Computed example of a mutant assay.
Amino acid sequence: MNKTLLGLDTQKNSDLVKELNGLLANFQIFYQNLRGLHWNIKGKNFFELHLKFEEFYTDSQIKIDEIAERILTLHGKPLHTFTDYLNTATIAVGKDISNDVEGVELVVNSLSELLKNERSILELSDAASDEGTNSMMSDFIAEQEKTIWMLNSWLGK
């Protein structure tokens, strides 16, 4: 069995890099959606959501860097063009959203899609004995599950 310098099976490592690039693409679209929501939100919840969307995009920016650096740690090449992101991402692009409920629903749906990616990566990284990726995905999942709960509470669900 061929191993990487990190002691991971080369094929499993390659699969992880591919899936992490998918997550990177989704996070980049999520980030841009959050920027748009931050800029365009209107209505009585403007002040609350304007700050919340900024909090979310700042956090996403950190996660984007962590994902790209994990890909590099695994000796992969992170996607880095908007074309690659749009061709790879599964998250919906939110355009011209200014309504509070519609904006929060977009965030919840995007987080749900990110969770699917992360759980898939967690399964792969567990099978590859890749504790670094396991730990990252576990942290992302726990945080995003809580955020979905809070946003659904805001929505009255």
Rank of each mutant, 00 (worst) to 15 (best):
N33A: 05
L34H: 01
R35C: 06
G36Q: 02
L37Y: 01
W39R: 09
N40D: 05
I41G: 01
I41Q: 05
K42C: 09
G43L: 00
N45F: 14
N45P: 06
L49T: 03
K52C: 02
F53L: 04
E55K: 09
E55I: 02
E55G: 01
F56W: 11
F56P: 01
F56I: 11
Y57I: 11
Y57F: 13
D59C: 06
S60T: 14
S60W: 01
Q61W: 11
I62L: 14
I62K: 11
I62A: 07
I62F: 14
I62G: 11
D65N: 11
I67G: 04
I67A: 04
I67W: 02
I67N: 01
A68K: 10
E69A: 06
R70W: 01
R70A: 09
I71V: 13
L72R: 13
T73F: 08
T73K: 07
L74H: 10
H75V: 15
H75D: 14
H75F: 13
K77D: 11
K77N: 13
P78H: 08
P78Q: 09
L79Q: 07
L79R: 05
T81A: 13
F82L: 15
T83F: 12
T83N: 10
D84F: 09
L86H: 08
N87T: 07
N87S: 13
N87F: 04
N87L: 12
N87I: 04
N87Q: 13
T88K: 12
A89V: 07
A89H: 11
T90L: 14
T90E: 12
I91L: 10
A92C: 15
A92V: 14
A92N: 12
G94N: 08
G94I: 13
K95E: 13
K95D: 10
D96Q: 14
I97P: 06
I97S: 08
S98A: 10
N99L: 08
V101H: 15
E102R: 12
V104Y: 03
V104K: 10
V104P: 05
E105D: 14
E105L: 14
L106H: 02
V107P: 00
V108C: 12
V108L: 05
V108W: 10
